[in-house]
Amino acid sequence: MKKIKIASYKVVSDIKLEDLSTSENLDSTDRELKKDLEKLREDLGDFQNTLYAHGKYAVLICFQGMDTSGKDSLIREVFKDCNVRGVVVHSFKVPTELELDHDYIWRHYIALPPKGKFGVFNRTHYENVLVTKVHPEYILSENIPNINTVADINESFWDKRYKQINDFERHITENGTLVFKFFLNISKEEQRQRLLRRLRLQEKNWKFSPGDLKERNLWDKYQQCYEEAINRTSKTNAPWFVIPADNKSASRLIVATILLESLKKYKDIKEPELDDKIKANIETYKSQLEKEK
């Protein structure tokens, strides 16, 4: 298998999505990729247990991508061997009335993972500079002062929103949350095939919505918004990774590799030492239990 080089997916300077590949097979068969993922996700589960015992960091993992890019199945497969109590997944949909009564980051802030856990955002706070930028009329539902019509939503508005998102991520990383952001980069043709599959297979019909085709017609606009969001918010403390997503098995393995290798660099994340008194009496405790037979 071709070695996965994290640096080749990490965004450290401005990118153009049209120049990036949407397909990666890592010189492996699908079966080989799945086998490699099995080992990686076991290690990721072990790391999460250590993270919990250490209790000083939380990990926030954000997934964005066009419809059918594979977010749901990736989350299911990559975190399958983690303790179910150690991974909390949030899927953000259209804001509720309660959420609209707060600022747009509020619902994401209260969903952040506690120390010791993985938090997974399936669609994220970036929807607020993606779908709302494609459909600026949605912003009007937020009841923001001085924003009364779509004409009031200018470039200055979006500049402030990018800054607010960067400030939000800087604040949480400075307080112990490790942030990873993944854009699943699917091709338009692959999306067409996956939408057709949803229509052809009866058991997949429930996944299809006519709205999928409406949004597909706005593909170029979405790509432009994703590109700008990634370029303006990929920071050292909260980097973006652009993952080729046409091959689901490869994309899952790449994401798992990036997470595990990046997290292992935090050498201070380790299981706490036993209290000296407990350590000195381990044999006594063992003997006490063994005598109960």
Rank of each mutant, 00 (worst) to 15 (best):
S234G: 08
Y126V: 02
E271L: 07
S262F: 08
F118T: 02
D275Y: 03
K10F: 11
F157T: 12
R161I: 06
N281T: 04
I4M: 12
K214D: 14
D43H: 08
C82K: 01
L218N: 15
K115E: 01
N237L: 05
V242D: 08
L263A: 00
F208N: 04
I254P: 01
N175A: 09
E273V: 11
N231Q: 07
D67C: 09
E155P: 07
A111N: 14
E290A: 11
D212I: 04
F92A: 08
R161L: 05
S209N: 15
T284C: 02
F47I: 01
E290C: 06
K93F: 05
C225I: 06
E42M: 12
D268S: 10
E77H: 15
S249A: 15
R85L: 13
L201G: 06
K93I: 11
N281E: 05
T177F: 02
S141N: 15
N185T: 04
E292V: 11
P113G: 03
D43C: 06
L289W: 09
A229D: 07
T124N: 05
R31D: 15
L195C: 09
F208W: 14
I186L: 12
E273L: 11
T22L: 00
N148T: 14
A256S: 09
N231M: 07
K277M: 03
A53P: 03
W240L: 00
N281D: 07
W158R: 11
K181M: 07
L40M: 07
R123Q: 07
T149E: 13
E271D: 08
I110W: 05
Y126W: 08
H54Q: 12
S69Y: 05
N185L: 04
S69V: 08
K293H: 01
E97C: 03
V78M: 01
D14R: 15
L51V: 08
N185V: 01
L74H: 01
A111Y: 10
R197L: 10
Q223F: 05
D19A: 15
T50M: 10
K3P: 06
D159V: 10
F180M: 05
C225R: 10
E228C: 09
K2D: 13
P272V: 05
L20F: 14
D220N: 14
F157E: 11
